[in-house]
Amino acid sequence: MNLRKKIMLNSPVIDGIKFIMLAMFCGWLIYRGSGRIGYNWQWYQVPRYLFTFDNNIFTPGPLLEGLWVTLKITACSLVLATVFGLLTALLRLSGSLVGRVLARVYLEVIRNTPLLVQIFFLYFVLAPIFELERFAAAVIALSLFEGAYASEIIRAGIVSIHRGQWEAAHSLGLSSFDTYRTVVLPQALQRILPSLTGQAVSLIKDSALVSTIAVYDLTMQGRTIIAETFLTFEIWFTVAAIYLIITLVLSLIVNVLEKRSPGGVQFT
């Protein structure tokens, strides 16, 4: 094969055509499969589960209401998970033996048990004891889970900051707290932002599991609609697309943020 042919085959146009052919093939497979089981596509039914627009009044449908709950859960868990993650990372790096052991136990327990079991444990065991609501139980379970993973990312970020930065801050008379706050964490955060975004994306996806304790999030709303209408294919496609849009938008925002700050994120 000569060079010219090679370039032709690797050009973006050819790639595009390959991609479209693949997508069409997948679509055809689904269409054929659904036809074979006699599936009756009713896409026109879907919009009213997203929102209705009567007399110029916008009313969110169950799917958007579910999305709102998913976003609330995710936002609360993200804040709490960051707090758990940061505290655990600091404990693991601290001079206190008790602190290090505690952090280690938390990490091992969380990382070596299924999230679904953790959610059930919190909801069925701890929630009645501490009188937690569903929503609170869901948020706590998710933040404990994601916090454990976030702490490892944060710890790696802190350790990656050169020793000279600590020494410079200390020799200026800064306390350890101020050194962390103004010198180490802003630089560490900059470095770990991509991994933390990945973690946030996982959090959004994992939040679907709280539908198992009857929190009416996006997934739960989808299940309910399907139970009532049998629009199985359409609704699951729609739900998946909504999750995809949210996670892509999140990645995009972080990308922009990352390009903006030189060398670090400012806390002040």
Binding site: G164, Q165, A168, A169, S171, P186, V265
Partner: peptide, 21 residues
């Protein structure tokens, strides 16, 4: 230790400026 560090300035071989500021 903190008092002494306030009174003693140090300059390093590798500068150690804070790159994010």
């Amino acid at each position: 230790r903190l008092e002494i560090r306030r009174e003693v300035g140090m300059v390093f071989q590798s500068f150690n400026l804070f790159p994010h500021m």
